[in-house]
Design a protein around this nucleic acid. Sequence first.
DNA 1: GCGACAG
DNA 2: ATCTTGTCGC
Length: 282
Amino acid sequence: MAGEAEAPPPEETLSFWKREQARLKALVVVGDTEAWQRDAALSGLRRVGGVDVSFVKGDGVRACASLVVLSYPELEVVYEDCCMVSLTAPYVSGFLAFREVPFLVDAVRRLREKEPRLVPQVLLVDGNGVLHHRGFGVACHLGVLTDLPCVGVAKKLLQVDGLENDAQHKEKIRLLQAGGDSFPLALKSHDRSSRPLYVSVGHKISLEAAVRLTRGCCRFRIPEPVRQADIRSRDYIRRTLAAPEPPTPAQERSQKAQGPKVCPKGGSKEPEGEDRPPEAHS
DNA sequence: GCGACAG
DNA sequence: ATCTTGTCGC
């Protein structure tokens, strides 16, 4: 049933989470491990994954976790897996992974079992990597648990290490000119976007490659893998809520998924304004 | 009391 | 994260 927003976790849980982050942080690989990451054109990169978790509006528990895989450089969805889940941990800034990562790991496991040929060479994660209070954001967490290269892509700046979203920072953003321009913290995803993306290393990739990859995945402000995962997880929730016989009562224990599917194609609405890049002039 | 707050 | 469809502009 629909649960309410959970209470903040006890101090004991937070200290346990911190110990877990410290333990797993030692396993993070910051730097390129794959040949395509070293190539300026990312030659050799064929599949990029994206993950996201969307929530049911008035519900603090039910959500849809999704994993999509896109071809590169075409950026067409070749795999999609949406799964209704019951969240257990509440959202606490700095501990996002403990709320979302278990379901993303499950999705990766299903993909490896059912469509091993479609396992992505890298995952774009909604959130931060090493740009984190303790240097271990959700992108690092997912990377270590799956051993897949991961990149953190956040839409807002997480202020850490005394980093401030002050006038100084805003001025640096204002100075970004063309799509692709970036400074160590922020990337302008395309020519007409004023709000940047905050890209950070998750696992098994360098910041330079992470930024190049993210840029290469941007048709709009939000990189396609993450954007498609977001769109599809929200649509899945919409369809689920509209269905007369939503889920099954007692089978939620196994957190069953809507059979992972290999998708031929798909159409979706396109954003406007700053989220939309300029039309292609011919 | 004030500021910060990934999703 | 969520509340939100069509619509004005280049």
